[in-house]
Amino acid sequence: MSLDPSVVTAFTPTGTLRASINLGNPILANKDAQTGQPFGVSVDLAREFAKRLGVDIELVVFDAAGKSVEAVTEERADIGFFAVDRLRGAGITFTAPYVLIEGFYLVRNESQVRNNADVDHEINRVAVGKGSAYDLFLTRELKHARIVRAPTSPTVVRTFMEQGLEIAAGVKQQLEADCLVTPGLRLLDECFMVIQQAMGMPRSRGETAGNYLRGFVEEMKASGFVAESLTRHGILGASVAPAA
């Protein structure tokens, strides 16, 4: 892609590319237990984008999606990695998605909730990560069940267990991992939403910069960069999004 110098300026008002990284979604980013450094497909994309711009990068790391979104919306970060949502779109310019992720419900083995249609009833309380894509989606979609917000997506099952809630909602892979360490839980048989994970930037940075970021994402999908990154980090269950 040709690079207009004004694009570099739009993405690096401080002289460094500040990339917002959300550790609340283990499909996109995790923290190395020994070094404390973040790694994952979003980190790989951020570093490659900085390389394309020819600038240094600063990873601005958060433990929850809502905090990561705020950092970009408030221009404390220049790019980020988010689930596409119309509410977030008020302050963020999104690319097309680069990864598709399934959202699932989790219940106790003895629960009478057997399928997704059983969830939206007044007797049910659903744990979600505060500010996550699941929170935004279910807040709009659930008319009767009550939403209980955990501090972050990785703490959803802990909140579900500690408060004796009926249902937990989140990333399929995170819930499956929680089932391995907490006996007596099961996932329902089908996803309730497919999340479109995209790159984003502050809307104020302009259309030219937005088009450059969109082109970057399409190239990363088409070249196999995203697929290779998912494989290298051992991510299962997420798929590369189709070309826009």
Rank of each mutant, 00 (worst) to 15 (best):
S239Q: 10
Q37I: 07
N30Y: 01
A65E: 15
Y134E: 12
R47P: 00
S229K: 05
R86F: 13
V128C: 04
S2H: 13
T182K: 05
D78V: 03
V72T: 10
P202G: 08
L180I: 07
T9I: 10
L23W: 02
K67F: 05
Q163P: 00
G89A: 15
G237I: 02
R149V: 00
E166S: 15
S20C: 05
H144M: 11
H121N: 08
L100W: 06
S111F: 06
A168Q: 03
G91R: 10
A90N: 14
V7R: 02
I235K: 09
M193T: 14
L87R: 14
R149P: 05
V8E: 06
F104T: 02
I101R: 02
S68L: 06
M1Q: 12
T16I: 14
F216W: 08
L188C: 07
L3D: 11
K221W: 04
L23H: 06
A83Q: 11
F225I: 09
P202V: 08
C179E: 11
D118T: 11
S223A: 11
P26L: 08
L142D: 03
T231L: 13
V60T: 12
P151M: 12
A241R: 01
T182P: 00
G210E: 01
A33N: 10
G206K: 08
D63R: 10
D63P: 03
Q174H: 07
F216N: 02
F192Y: 15
I123A: 13
Q174S: 14
S132I: 03
P26Q: 08
R125I: 00
K67V: 00
R186S: 05
Q197L: 13
I79W: 05
L138W: 08
S239F: 01
G66L: 02
K31D: 00
G54N: 11
L45W: 03
E75M: 14
P38H: 08
R18L: 04
G40M: 07
A65S: 14
E102T: 13
G131Y: 00
L45V: 08
L236E: 15
E102R: 15
V226M: 05
V72E: 01
G103N: 13
E166M: 08
S6F: 04
D189H: 13
P202Y: 09
L165A: 05
